[in-house]
Write a protein that binds this DNA or RNA. Sequence first.
DNA 1: AACATAAGAATCGTTGAACAATTCGACAAG
DNA 2: CTTGTCGAATTGTTCAACGATTCTTATGTT
Lengths: 221, 221
Amino acid sequence: MVADLSQDRPRLGRSSTAERVADILRDRISEGFFRPGQRLSEESISEGLGVSRNTLREAFRLLGHERLLDHKLNRGVFVRLPSAEDVSDLYRVRRVLEGAAVRIGPAPEVLAVIKEAVLDAERAAAQDDWQGVGTANIRFHQALVSLNGSPRIDEAMRQLLAELRLVFHVMENPRAFHEPFVDRNRTLLGLIESGQPEKAAAYLDDYLDHAERLLIDAYAP
Amino acid sequence: MVADLSQDRPRLGRSSTAERVADILRDRISEGFFRPGQRLSEESISEGLGVSRNTLREAFRLLGHERLLDHKLNRGVFVRLPSAEDVSDLYRVRRVLEGAAVRIGPAPEVLAVIKEAVLDAERAAAQDDWQGVGTANIRFHQALVSLNGSPRIDEAMRQLLAELRLVFHVMENPRAFHEPFVDRNRTLLGLIESGQPEKAAAYLDDYLDHAERLLIDAYAP
DNA sequence: AACATAAGAATCGTTGAACAATTCGACAAG
DNA sequence: CTTGTCGAATTGTTCAACGATTCTTATGTT
């Protein structure tokens, strides 16, 4: 009857106000409500959210560590505006994390999630919903990385993709960027599924090279 | 005459009190002054350091995000005490980051740093300075990972090794753990230097498997 | 003696106000 | 046009207070 309740233990830790504030801000940044480069005033936001400045500052620290905010001493916090070098580095990390993942090979449960993401992307693309394609694409790569089986790598990937979303918000034409990768995701899935890790890794490397170039060319922050 | 001063811009950002407090605490944890599992009282530490509780809390948040502190709501912050699963995951990440590094192959400047670390470890071992061996070993792996050429990966490795140091502080016999790896480091260096990335990667995998097993066996938190 | 319960102490979570330090723009002086 | 200075605005940090939560200890019951 008691089964394994220890798995629910983490959920027990409720969250402090600062963490909830951080969640809200993270969402707002992720959805583009706060634009990259924009300054976040302590006074107006703490007032708007109805929390004290001290609590808000704790939240700022959290997001600063996630590289979503840029904290400049005595000047305030700004939504991070990644540089072209940042983009390169993000893709450098992706090549490492995703490359290692495909080399490890498929696991049934993860594969199901990946497939679902591919389908979602295809469905969204069919409806010209490029926002939806982007979201599904992110889920695809997040699931891909989870093949590593490492909570820390999953967390790192989450942060990386959140940072990458900042880049997307600076771009003007998300369709041109996401469109080519719907098909590529399906192809990559096929290579993984059929147990050809080296081929999949090579394909992925080319995939990421292509994406990086595309992104950097269209990127002038 | 003005040349490129924009490169010096980062140095302009001095550090706030909270960051300096975080630096101090990080050092203290790293050196074992604060033991894993120990609770850090807001009152006593803020008083001891002469900073306000609010400032100290900001510092706590930073270190919490680095996984050096464990923040339990309404109960305080504790020096993190990694579980056996944490150790496994840390090595999972190491296999990914270090594996990717050796596959990329040697770069002259980095190779020099790696060599220096190997020599330092050998010198320290000759003098039975196992603390020194541990430090040199960390420098070795940090340099190894820097072959990836990614600031973000370097940073991730720094945090990972800091977390791993927590594990070492729980162990009683550091010598037994560090001793076997002095020679292995030299061998691995040789494989990298001579341009045999696949062999180096295989050797490294075995290296890390061995270290992980050794560590987990001797680890009962 | 074992266990449950309740009161009390200690600590954290959060707030609001206050003041010093720093930045930045405006404007005057050279 | 450059440089120096003033002042408003914002951040950095501290302090005191109080409610909320957890831990401890004493108390009472079976």
